[in-house]
Design a protein around this nucleic acid. Structure first.
Lengths: 158, 158
DNA sequence: ACACCTTCGTTCGAATTTGAACAACAGGAG
DNA sequence: CTCCTGTTGTTCAAATTCGAACGAAGGTGT
């Protein structure tokens, strides 16, 4: 499918893009993780759960739906929602239309915690990523990575 | 430093770029992880260790140096090098110029495993990222993320 | 109503990651 | 030389992640 003899290696530009992506991704995650933990006691994943819930209608989402948005495993989500439940930031209730379904819901305290954590997080994302790039670079990045994400989502069903 | 009253939230383009980055990063890692594990029994991290060693002079690197390149914790690297050592892909030897130093070195078997794993990995990176983007998008991505990485590396020392 | 296949969320064990603490050493100022 | 500070790699406990297996329920065709 790909090659009969020699594989197509990455040239200099391609390699630079790929390495840049990997390195930037790792470094960014590292920094955001530290900042959120120090500032609000949340992991990046936990923060993202709160964000997605707060952006959803009714501040609530089905577990599977949430796992898809977060790009994580179902079991991983179960674990993190349990943690957030213990912290009082998220609640579970059963789905009316599906007995199997579980709906994760933002609590008042969760909303408040997010409101308090968001500014610092956004400021750091800005400082480390957004403000480093030009307006044009941002647009290209958004469009390009949007296409990549779409490409990846389409055949994500093994 | 950042704001006296209201934080500067992300506008639509900025949010798209940021979300695209996070989602693409997670999806990509997920896919590469699966492919490498199925194809060669290596994790992405282990693969990257082999790559960095094979790219280094003498197929060897100091532990700290390697940890920096991989953007991982020292303890995490210790663990993974131990795993690779058990698999016979990497060896440890002590540093001549520094008694404390430990040098990780690629074994013949490690070189061979990498040679066998690389084509499939590169092909997937190509399919999921490189070939989805235009030549221009690639150049912008490389330049932009290079700047971001540089920015992140500069004040990474807490 | 019945079998059949898929989906949902959780549980379980194994693997991995992290930061803090640690002992041993390097490098320089005095 | 001698202190003093920073570095190096490892160990440790704790937290997190994943995939496979699971029971329970949805949905469909007959």
């Amino acid at each position: 499918m790909s090659s009969l003899n020699e594989p197509r290696w990455l040239d200099q530009d391609e390699m630079a893009a790929w390495r840049g992506f990997v390195v930037a991704s790792n470094l960014l995650n590292r920094r955001l993780e530290r900042q959120l933990k120090d500032d609000s006691g949340l992991s990046h994943q936990q923060y993202e759960i709160l964000v997605h819930l707060s952006a959803a209608p009714g501040d609530s989402l089905r577990m599977t739906e949430l796992a898809d948005k977060l790009v994580t495993s179902k079991s991983g989500l179960t674990y993190q929602v349990t943690q957030l439940e213990r912290m009082g930031l998220v609640g579970r209730r059963s789905c009316p239309s599906d007995v199997r379904g579980v709906i994760a819901e933002l609590t008042d305290q969760g909303r408040e915690t997010l409101r308090q954590a968001a500014p610092g997080h956004v400021a750091l994302v800005r400082e480390l990523l957004i403000d480093v790039l030009t307006r044009e670079q941002l647009a290209v990045l958004a469009e390009g990575l949007g296409a990549v994400s779409a490409r990846l989502r389409q055949d994500d069903t093994p």
